[in-house]
Design a protein around this nucleic acid. Sequence first.
DNA 1: GTACCCCTACTCGGATAGCGAGTGTCCGAGTCGGAATGG
DNA 2: CCATTCCGACTCGGACACTCGCTATCCGAGTAGGGGTAC
Lengths: 161, 161
Amino acid sequence: MRMSDGVEWAAHACALLAALPEGVGVSAALLAEFNDLPPAYMAKHMQALARAGVVTSARGAGGGYRLARPASEVTLWDIVEAVEGPEPAFRCTEIRQKGPCAAKPAECRHPCQIAAAFHAAEKAWRGSLKAVSLASILADLARKQSPARRAELLAWLETKL
Amino acid sequence: MRMSDGVEWAAHACALLAALPEGVGVSAALLAEFNDLPPAYMAKHMQALARAGVVTSARGAGGGYRLARPASEVTLWDIVEAVEGPEPAFRCTEIRQKGPCAAKPAECRHPCQIAAAFHAAEKAWRGSLKAVSLASILADLARKQSPARRAELLAWLETKL
DNA sequence: GTACCCCTACTCGGATAGCGAGTGTCCGAGTCGGAATGG
DNA sequence: CCATTCCGACTCGGACACTCGCTATCCGAGTAGGGGTAC
């Protein structure tokens, strides 16, 4: 099982958007340049975030992406769901209904014990991701990152806006 | 993100092995037939379980696979780890060290907030899977499955052993 | 009758093709800002 | 000097190739068990 790299990219991009002053848009190309990523592919993932309503997009000069909601209301799960889709990683194929000892559909109104356990595990995973918002990430970062470095990053962004 | 179907197959196969009397081996072909799965592919996953030490294999007539440990000591995580490998789904590529504002390696002794959050979420996921053993699955099943059906399954297996 | 040997059938194990999701890229659609122009 | 129009540059958005890992399969390696043979 492997998570798409795009999730990491999207998460970092959203963290950057959350750190910006309100009302400022950033192009996908700039977001890509900031982390040395392929611009076109980065744009593709930003489109996914826009479709999911995590960010809003504006075309034309001075346009770009910005967060659609306050940073405290955007969780990591929102980003994962936007980029990878809402489907669970574990998908029960109901093999208990196959083979010479197949269970009848009437007996399968409830998921089998194995599927239930995997669904519970994924629920725990999602819950953990839903508990982390962009705001909490930035708060954590502010505590551990030197103010000098933070200023350095914002200064670089200023030159590009 | 998508989990390999082999995990579901392996989990059901292990549950079947756990339900058998001790000392009985079952061939990969029979495990596959029981759930109408491709025999050769099923065998491949059983090999993975054997390599990981979840099951033991015996060649020759009357051989096959059996659990390497009591069912209470085999968790769903053991099976996932055996089939999919121990690597986490989220793999931080350290993009903070790339680009024009790259962080220096000395600043990156700790994982970034995003990677930390994903690792915590996966830890919760693994923890949930480690809490479910084959024994607990069988206990749950015994509570919900009719005794008649259980007898039916064992009867079919008898004819094939 | 018994012990030994060989042979067959059965099982695992790794090496080998095929396919689909994710990866990466490009060009067209749409929009804003400013420069040029005429009143 | 000001309003209007037009043009250009910038940005998003979806459509098009490519790659790698999961899917699926086959054939060789190794072993247990039984039958045959010699003593």
